[in-house]
């Protein structure tokens, strides 16, 4: 695991030259990257660079026009989004998209939709341990939670499927700085617990500080990649994303 780039045996997700279109708009122009087991990999880039599109394509909500995606060495392009979840890929989408009219507990139950019924209560308990605030509000309608609580619920819901790879799309969006730190602490805890995470962020500084590797996206292309620390130190990134 010293040089994860070459350890293809541990490659969990491999994206190869995907092209994605919205109608006639060429949103993703040949992106390739991979995520290895126990890594935090981050995709950073400005608004409209194609970060969310990339995640939505991996999760099966969008279909690439060409290119391939392998999860545990199995091709997953063309597999529907709901079937992909069964393979161990979970996504916490942009804007959280929790079920606002359902209770906290029902949201978590939906997160565990792919799992046997008898394992659900224990998993819910796990999520409550990680997010005690959710336990206090388990019977509350999710729409009445604060933004930070909703983000916690969205992450807890994604964890309910016991994913091998957790994809987080802008988990810090719209949150107060103190909550952003809390969310990033949780991501690090999950990572320490053995989780593999693909993190999409506009908050490049935070994302790069916890990631092992990073890819920088610009208008549908990867313009830089490498060790997260190196990317953080590079002049281009400092100028473009960190305002230094």
């Amino acid at each position: 695991m010293q040089n994860s780039m070459q350890e293809s045996a541990h490659s969990l997700l491999k994206v190869q030259d995907i092209h994605v279109y919205y109608g006639s708009i060429h949103a993703i122009k040949g992106i390739s990257f991979e995520v290895n087991e126990h890594e935090i990999v981050t995709l950073i880039g400005a608004n409209g660079a194609g970060k969310s599109t990339t995640l939505n394509t991996i999760s099966g909500l969008l279909k690439p026009r060409s290119g391939s995606i392998f999860f545990e060495n199995e091709p997953i392009v063309g597999v529907s989004a709901d079937k992909i979840v069964y393979r161990g890929l979970a996504m916490c989408p942009e804007g959280r998209r929790i079920f606002l009219n359902m209770t906290v507990e029902e949201n978590l139950e939906m997160g565990g939709y792919t799992r046997p019924k008898e394992e659900i209560p224990a998993s819910i308990e796990d999520v409550y341990q990680r997010f005690p605030r959710l336990k206090e509000r388990y019977h509350q309608i999710a729409g009445t939670l604060s933004g930070g609580e909703q983000q916690m619920l969205a992450m807890g819901r994604a964890l309910m499927s016991k994913p091998k790879l957790l994809m987080l799309d802008e988990p810090s969006m719209g949150l107060a700085p103190i909550l952003v730190e809390q969310i990033f602490d949780i991501i690090q805890e999950l990572h320490a617990g053995g989780a593999t995470i693909l993190l999409v962020e506009q908050n490049a500084q935070m994302a790069l500080s916890i990631a092992s590797r990073a890819y920088v996206l610009e208008t549908g292309r990867i313009v830089m990649s490498g060790d997260a620390k190196e990317v953080l130190e590079s002049d281009e990134v400092k100028k473009a994303y960190l305002g230094k």
């Binding site: 999760s59 909500l61 529907s80 709901d82 079937k83 989408p93 079920f99 939906m110 939709y113 792919t114």
Partner: peptide, 22 residues
Amino acid sequence: KVGKAMRAVSEDRGAAQLMGIN
């Protein structure tokens, strides 16, 4: 479970798919 999945689909079809709901 099926009934709750119906409510989930009615709220947000995409998010419901991400839960594994057909």
